[in-house]
Design a protein around this nucleic acid. Sequence first.
DNA 1: TATACAAAATGACGTAACGTCACTTTCAAG
DNA 2: CTTGAAAGTGACGTTACGTCATTTTGTATA
Lengths: 259, 259
Amino acid sequence: MIHIKEVAKQTDISVRTLRYYDQIGLLTAPAKTEGGHRLYTEEELKRLQYIHFLKGMGYSLKEIKKMLSDPNWNWRDSLNNQLACILEEQQRLKRMESSLRELIHGIVVEGGDEQAAVQKLIQLSQQYKKRSPSLEQSIFSKRERELLARVPKMNGEDPDTMEWIALLGQLKQHMKDGPDSPKVQSIVRRMLEKQAEEFEDENEFIDKLWEVRKSPQQSELLGLYPIEQELLDFMEQAYEAHMVLLQGRLGGKGEYRES
Amino acid sequence: MIHIKEVAKQTDISVRTLRYYDQIGLLTAPAKTEGGHRLYTEEELKRLQYIHFLKGMGYSLKEIKKMLSDPNWNWRDSLNNQLACILEEQQRLKRMESSLRELIHGIVVEGGDEQAAVQKLIQLSQQYKKRSPSLEQSIFSKRERELLARVPKMNGEDPDTMEWIALLGQLKQHMKDGPDSPKVQSIVRRMLEKQAEEFEDENEFIDKLWEVRKSPQQSELLGLYPIEQELLDFMEQAYEAHMVLLQGRLGGKGEYRES
DNA sequence: TATACAAAATGACGTAACGTCACTTTCAAG
DNA sequence: CTTGAAAGTGACGTTACGTCATTTTGTATA
């Protein structure tokens, strides 16, 4: 006969828990001293491990009690059911993770204004419910829709996505310097460079994507993080300034190759 | 001014919940009618969506209240922290999933005896805590330890693992027929075939693995699902019977190639 | 054997985020 | 003015124990 504290020590389950299990009839002490102290046997140790394991699988104490008392319990269905629940919960956590990453990155882009970032995310998720693939199909070809999947979505954890977010955030910070300031121009150069790396020779696609980007409404419909109008306009100005500088340099050297 | 039911309808949050939020001071109604009916404004709708979103991220109402009331809240740290929690929870669910699959498969192997399957899993998980890589290193070479990782672990969901489990279960079912019954022999043939497919030309490794397999203790130490002695012995008998039959057939045709 | 002290027992309250009664009061239309 | 719907408040139930407070029991020592 084993005292309650010994059971607790061996199974690493608290004394309180053991008393509770006794109370709800999940694991009753098979004997008591005259004074009423609980006494257990090896049998209870086993059953306790069993219970502990099942609890670890996510079952509630009530369910476990039912399982252990019913000799005809359908284990196959029950376990498969539990597995399905767990897989569903995993999906839920994945979605949460994705949203959190989006929010974290969003705050960087919004320059630390978490209010704005949350608002945009809420907009986005509401839009997402009623989004139909019609817009996507009307604008982009099949090949281009494949490319679309590779556009950073603000919720990635890869270094590539990270840099895009950082660049956007930097751009916002330096809006006050004007579109042709050296800092802004260096950011734009880097953006074009990355764009070229990822989507080389897909100029038509890039142009279309930019057209969509320039409309916050359309961006939302495509599930893209909505960039505010001001920043978009600034990017376009910076881009044009970049082109002018480029032409100037090339013109000075007597060459011209861009259309 | 919007009535409580209208707010509930628009946000899809129950009236009870709104009253509760009012009660705990998370979303207080800015006005009331003479009779005490709550009246809300658009402002509260926004705040409510905000709250709902944060709750979806896994924050408790108490935390949300703190976040929304503190204008100097450190969002970056808080969000990253939450993300870390979610990733941890994902790990936990993955482990649960793995154990559940192991148990479901184990019951098949044990011929429906879930008691035995659970017992073995508990043994295995306890062993796992104090397992050191010493045994693994002493028996297997580096190359062979790589192969070891490919041995089905009872918790996979791939068709390959599934078949191994099914074969083991079938073998157990047909133990009563004797090791040289046609059914058993067909199972053994299939097992050898699969073994050859996965580990062709790794005979030395296969032999070592079998040696380990034949000792339930060593199997446990390696984290392999412990197959009961009886079944192991039967497998060996069936294997030997297979070899005898093979030699008989080859011998009859005047050929001999096995060592 | 009396005493002291550890360990056990019991009972009660608290936790999170509401759902679900039960009962009363208010609102708005006819 | 009545009436039925909607709103209000209050209380209990839920899960799986942790954490007191208080009392009783077991056991070792003087």
